[in-house]
Simulated assay, not measured.
Amino acid sequence: MKAMPGRIRIIGGNLRNSRLNVPDLPGLRPTPERVRETLFNWLAPTITGVRALDLCAGTGALGIEALSRGAAAVQFVEPERALAEALRGNLARLRADTAEVALMDATQFLRGTPRAYGLAFLDPPFAAQLWTPLARLMEQGGWLAEGAQVYVESPRDQPLALPPSWVLHREGHAGEVRYALYRRSQNDPLS
């Protein structure tokens, strides 16, 4: 079941049942509650203390859910001013002081100075077809720690060309959406 437009509920952790205000924008596709619940059940053993990157943040629901469940800090990246401002407002209201919002394009952000994250969310707008270039920039640019986990959300029938060091850990489907959790292998299989 999808959340009503304009409001999204955090489903677990210390911010459970908090509502996020979300602007009504065309193409905005928040991750459904059922998918977030599954994802964070997968992440439960490793989420505490992790530094996360919510690339193409949109509503910020994935990153805020991570904060709610024990992530140490989350970097949000969102180029749409209305979404970034709504996200900043939600974070301030929730007193999430270990979160930062960068108002910029994901590609531009990944061309900056890297910081290694233990968890990354890669859920770009489907029409933009950014999975491969953003995955490549994250992998080659030093944005992922050894053993990092990367969540990827894409159309169910979309073939993805992800780095060979990203090993599929778990996956599922919800309607026409494929969601998957990858682990960055300790050693690149091509080296």
Rank of each mutant, 00 (worst) to 15 (best):
L39Y: 12
N41S: 11
N41Q: 10
W42I: 06
W42H: 07
W42V: 06
L43Y: 06
A44W: 11
P45W: 08
P45D: 08
T46E: 13
T46C: 07
I47L: 15
T48H: 15
T48P: 01
G49Y: 13
V50G: 01
V50Q: 14
R51I: 02
R51K: 11
R51Q: 12
L53H: 09
D54L: 08
L55T: 06
C56Q: 05
A57K: 03
G58S: 11
T59M: 02
T59Q: 02
T59W: 05
G60N: 14
A61L: 08
A61T: 09
L62V: 02
L62K: 00
L62P: 01
G63Y: 09
E65S: 03
E65P: 06
A66E: 10
L67K: 01
L67H: 01
S68V: 08
R69K: 04
R69H: 02
G70T: 12
G70P: 09
G70W: 14
A71T: 06
A71K: 10
A72D: 13
A73W: 08
A73V: 00
A73H: 09
V74W: 03
V74H: 00
Q75L: 00
Q75F: 03
V77E: 03
V77T: 07
E78Y: 04
P79L: 02
E80M: 07
R81T: 14
A82S: 15
A82F: 12
L83C: 06
A84R: 04
A84S: 14
A84F: 04
E85A: 13
E85M: 12
E85F: 10
A86M: 06
A86N: 05
L87I: 00
L87W: 00
L87N: 01
L87D: 00
R88Q: 14
N90D: 03
L94Q: 10
R95H: 15
R95D: 15
A96N: 07
A96K: 06
D97Y: 15
D97C: 08
T98I: 07
T98P: 07
A99R: 05
E100W: 13
E100T: 15
V101M: 07
V101C: 08
V101N: 06
V101G: 04
A102N: 13
A102K: 15
A102V: 11
L103E: 15
L103S: 12
M104A: 10
D105G: 03
A106D: 00
Q108N: 01
F109P: 01
F109R: 04
L110R: 11
L110V: 11
R111Q: 10
R111L: 07
T113P: 00
T113L: 08
P114V: 04
P114I: 08
A116V: 01
A116N: 01
Y117F: 15
Y117A: 05
Y117H: 15
Y117Q: 05
G118T: 07
L119M: 09
L119D: 02
L119N: 02
A120G: 01
A120Q: 01
